[in-house]
Computed example of a mutant assay.
Amino acid sequence: MAEKIAASQVMTNPVNFFAFGFGAGLAPKAPGTFGTLVAIPFVWLTADLSLFYYLALTAVICIVGVYLCHKSAEQLGVHDHPGIVWDEIAGYFITMIGFSFTWTNAIVGFVLFRFFDIIKPWPIRWADKKVSGGFGIMLDDIIAGMFAWVSLFLFNYFGSGL
C-alpha cells in the first residue's frame, strides 16, 4: 500500500497537480481508472485534429509525462505512487490514435487500456518492474496503450455490429 498523500500536496504543487491527473489520482480506490477517465474529455476535445497533430500532441504528453512523473515521484519520495496517473492519460491518448471519437470507441478503448494496464502481460510487466524513473513510470502505460490500440483496431476492423 502506497503512502497516503495529502490533497494539499497535490492541489497546490503544479507538478503533482498534473502528475495526479488534475487531482483524479487522489481517488481512494482505483486512481488509475479515474486518471484514465480524465483523459476521455481531452481525447474528445482533440478528436478533430489531423493525425499529424494528434500524434504530435500525444508525443508531447508522453515526453512531458516522463518529467512530471519523475519529479512527482521524487518530491513525494514514492516511486510510481498509484496516484500518479499522467501515465494513464498518455496511455489512453495512445489507445485512441487514429480512431474517430464515438462512444463505442471511447468505451471499448477505455476498457481495453484498463485491462492491459491492470493485467500487465509481457512486456508491460517487465517494463513496470525493470525500468525506473519517470521513463519507467510512463513506459508500461505506453506499451499498454499500444496493446489496447491494436485490440481496438481489431475490434473495429472485424466489426462489432455496434
Rank of each mutant, 00 (worst) to 15 (best):
I94P: 12
G133M: 08
M138L: 14
C69H: 06
A30T: 02
L76C: 08
W103G: 00
A90P: 08
G133T: 05
D80L: 04
F110R: 03
G134K: 04
T36R: 08
T104A: 09
S8W: 05
D141H: 10
G25V: 01
T104F: 09
G83H: 03
V108D: 03
I63S: 14
G23S: 01
G65C: 05
G35Q: 04
A6L: 15
W86H: 10
A24W: 02
L154Q: 02
W103F: 15
D117L: 07
V78P: 00
D48N: 15
C69Q: 06
L51K: 11
D140F: 02
A19C: 02
G77E: 09
C62I: 15
M1D: 10
G98A: 13
M138T: 11
T58E: 12
G161W: 08
L55T: 08
M146S: 11
T12I: 03
F22I: 13
I94Q: 11
F99A: 12
V66Q: 03
N156D: 11
F153I: 05
N156G: 07
G83E: 02
A73L: 02
A56K: 03
G91N: 08
G65Y: 07
T36F: 11
I40N: 02
A27P: 05
K130M: 15
F158L: 12
L26A: 01
R125F: 08
R125Y: 11
P28R: 14
S100H: 13
A59S: 13
S8M: 09
V43N: 06
F116Y: 14
A2V: 11
A2K: 13
L57Y: 05
D80M: 10
G159Q: 06
K29N: 09
A7W: 09
D128M: 09
G145L: 12
S151L: 14
G145N: 11
I40L: 13
I124H: 10
A73I: 02
V60Q: 06
A73C: 14
P82L: 04
W103N: 03
C69N: 11
T95H: 09
V66D: 04
L51P: 06
A148H: 00
A144Y: 01
L68Y: 09
S132D: 15
S100L: 14
S100G: 14
G32W: 00
F42K: 00
F101Q: 07
P123R: 09
G21P: 03
I118D: 06
Y157L: 13
W44S: 05
L26Q: 00
T12R: 12
H79G: 06
I63D: 08
L112V: 02
P121Y: 07
P123Y: 06
V78H: 00
F135N: 07
G161P: 04
F101N: 03
G21C: 03
V66R: 01
F147Q: 07
I142C: 15
W122T: 15
I63Y: 14
I118H: 05
G77F: 03
A127T: 06
I118S: 13
V150L: 15
G91Y: 10
A6R: 14
S50M: 03
D87P: 09
F20L: 07
H79V: 08
G145R: 12
V43D: 05
S151N: 03
L55K: 10
V10Q: 01
G35T: 00
G98N: 12
L26S: 01
G145K: 10
G32S: 07
D140C: 13
I5T: 12
F115A: 13
V108T: 08
V38R: 04
V38H: 04
G109W: 06
V38W: 00
